[in-house]
Structure formats: structure tokens, C-alpha cells
């Protein structure tokens, strides 16, 4: 790890100002940043520790929705009674992520900003080419080990998978990211790699995530997060789905549906095609399975990650059907 200086921010403004300086980075739970600094990927000159700031860890929930401070920690949000009851998918996405220890450290702001687990990205000593690290250097993954890489939203420059679980749930429920005054839909906050995979978020220097807000909805209340992986726990998703559903009074006809995919795309992946195909339909296994195939429309594999194209629609279908069962 390269040497850096350490600065403890005393206010949000001070943090923003300090972090705007070249070479400076915000430090929250450190579970991404310290890890990547040890890998030689992050090379900050100054770390601006924001974990001692007061008031940014608040969790407020009512009928209209939830507002979660950027410094609220994953574990606390996951266990929050109102989040569990009004946004089960959010709680489930969180408790199935990482480990209990990491969730006690990791903040919601830092969580959105976590970086890809692409092994080439994480190993600069062995793999010089990585467009995400060094723009224009090439992509080591293409033609290499791609089992964990994205099949949706990829570009010729980068096929790295966005690994976060929470953001997948957030994007399904139209959450917004608060950068102080500026507010962005989560869907807009994350950028596609295109030709600039080094730029992952619509956040400007000097900006800081202060909170996220999730509108309350019937679909959010009846929601789930289904995460499939090789290992039962402590692993990123092979494919996951955040799904929320609202039925008409008959309890069978779908009025509202939210579907987002994780583990398969370069950013949290909302799949409106599936939503549109099923809205107004009666929930039947066959219909759901057929519509779920739309989740991977346009998917492109790189060999070893082909299974994700098969897997993702099945995860979506199962999640939808599971919510139907609990009617």
C-alpha cells in the first residue's frame, strides 16, 4: 500500500472540500477502498475519513418512503424493523451481501461506490491492461477468465460486472441518490462502460453521497431479493433478482411489478421489459417463465459466463412466483 495522509473530516462541507483535492478520496467503511489500496488499484494521497461525521447515519421510514443516510451501515439497515417490513428486498439484499463483519463496517454510500470484482482489474501487478483502471490500456478480461463477468451492458472496452446487491434492489424501486442538494435516480447514477469504463458514476469531484431515498410503494412492501451463487454465503451473486409485486384486488392479476437483475450486468439492471410483459396479466408459472426470458434480451456472453444468460431469467421467474405464493 502506498503511503497516504489521513484526515478526519469534521463536517460534510469540509469532507467535500478536502476530497475535491487531487489525490484525495473519501474513506467510509474502507471495505472497498482499503482492500483496493492493498491491491495497488487505489493509490490515494489523502484519505478523508467521514465515519466520525454525526447525523449521516440516520434511517427514517414512513409510508412515503425511506431515507437512509450515507453513513448508515449495511448491517443496521438490514436489521431495521421498518426496512424489513416495508422494503423486504432491501433488507434481504443487504443481509445476503458480504459478511456480518463487513456489513457492520460498510456504509450505504460506500456500498453504491463499490468497484467491480473483475480479477484483472484487481491485479495491476500482473495485468497492466485494464480500461477501467487506465483508460485506453485495453481489457485483459476479454479472451481470459470471464466466468464472473457481465452479459448485459457490456462494451468492447469493458465487460466488468457491477457486484453490488443493494443497488440492484434500489434500482427496482426507483430510489434516488442524494449528493447534497443534487438528486439522481439510482439508474442514472450508474453509468454504462461504453468507451469510458473508468467513469462509473455520475458523481463529480467535490460531491459526496449524503443519503439515498426510496419511495414507498405496494410493490416495495411485497418484495424479495433472490441471490444465487456457488457458495451458500459470503460470495457475490452469480445472478440475483430484486422483485416487487402488487396485485389487483383479485390477488392474482399483476398491477405493478418491479424487476432488476444483479450479478449479470455492468450496472444495476432494471428490466422493464419483464415488468411490461406481465403487468395486467394473471400470475401463472408459464406466463411468468416466458416473460422472464425478456430479462436477458440483448445479452452477450464471453464463453465461461454464458450460464448467466440461462440462469438470470430463472432467478427472475422464481422470485416472482415466490412472491405470488405468499399472496
Amino acid at each position: 500500500m502506498r503511503d497516504f495522509s489521513y484526515l478526519r473530516a469534521t463536517s460534510t462541507d469540509a469532507a467535500r472540500q478536502a476530497a475535491a483535492l487531487p489525490g484525495a478520496m473519501l474513506l467510509a467503511g474502507g471495505t472497498t477502498l482499503i482492500d483496493l489500496a492493498k491491491c495497488g488499484v487505489a493509490e490515494p494521497d489523502t484519505l478523508v475519513d467521514i465515519t466520525h461525521l454525526k447525523g449521516l447515519d440516520r434511517i427514517a421510514v414512513d409510508e412515503r418512503g425511506a431515507t437512509i443516510g450515507a453513513l448508515a451501515r449495511m448491517g443496521h439497515v438490514a436489521d431495521h424493523a421498518d426496512i424489513k417490513s416495508r422494503f423486504p428486498a432491501i433488507s434481504e439484499a443487504l443481509w445476503q451481501a458480504a459478511s456480518a463483519q463487513i456489513r457492520n463496517m460498510a456504509t450505504i454510500g460506500g456500498n453504491l461506490m463499490q468497484r467491480t470484482r473483475c480479477p484483472y482489474f484487481r491485479d495491476p501487478a500482473n495485468f497492466a491492461a485494464c480500461n477501467k483502471r487506465v483508460s485506453g490500456s485495453g481489457c485483459s478480461a476479454i479472451g481470459g477468465v470471464t466466468r464472473g463477468h457481465a452479459v448485459l451492458g457490456t462494451s468492447e472496452a469493458c465487460i466488468a460486472m457491477y457486484p453490488g446487491d443493494l443497488a440492484t434492489a434500489l434500482v427496482a424501486f426507483d430510489a434516488t441518490v442524494h449528493l447534497g442538494e443534487r438528486k439522481l435516480l439510482v439508474d442514472d447514477f450508474f453509468l454504462l462502460p461504453g468507451t469510458t469504463p473508468d467513469r462509473e458514476h455520475a458523481i463529480e469531484p467535490g460531491e459526496m453521497i449524503t443519503a439515498i431515498a426510496i419511495p414507498g410503494s405496494a410493490a416495495a412492501r411485497r418484495s424479495t431479493y433472490l441471490k444465487i451463487r456457488d457458495r451458500q454465503s459470503y460470495e457475490f451473486a452469480a445472478a440475483s433478482a430484486a422483485v416487487g409485486i402488487e396485485f389487483e384486488a383479485d390477488g392474482r392479476t399483476i398491477r405493478d411489478l418491479r424487476v432488476a437483475l444483479g450479478g449479470v450486468a455492468t450496472k444495476p439492471w432494471r428490466v422493464r421489459a419483464v415488468e411490461d410483459a406481465l403487468k395486467g396479466k394473471v400470475l401463472e408459472p408459464e406466463t411468468v417463465r416466458a416473460a422472464s426470458l425478456l430479462a436477458v434480451e440483448g445479452a452477450v456472453d464471453h464463453g465461461a459466463n454464458h450460464y448467466k444468460i440461462e440462469l438470470a431469467p430463472r432467478v427472475v421467474a422464481r422470485a416472482i412466483l415466490k412472491l405470488g405464493e405468499t399472496a
Binding site: R231, S233, Y234, E235
Partner: peptide, 8 residues
Amino acid sequence: YLVPTNAD
């Protein structure tokens, strides 16, 4: 390199 966790 996945080794089993307690949950497995």
C-alpha cells in the same frame, strides 16, 4: 477460490 463457509 471458494472454500466452504459455515453456511455450506
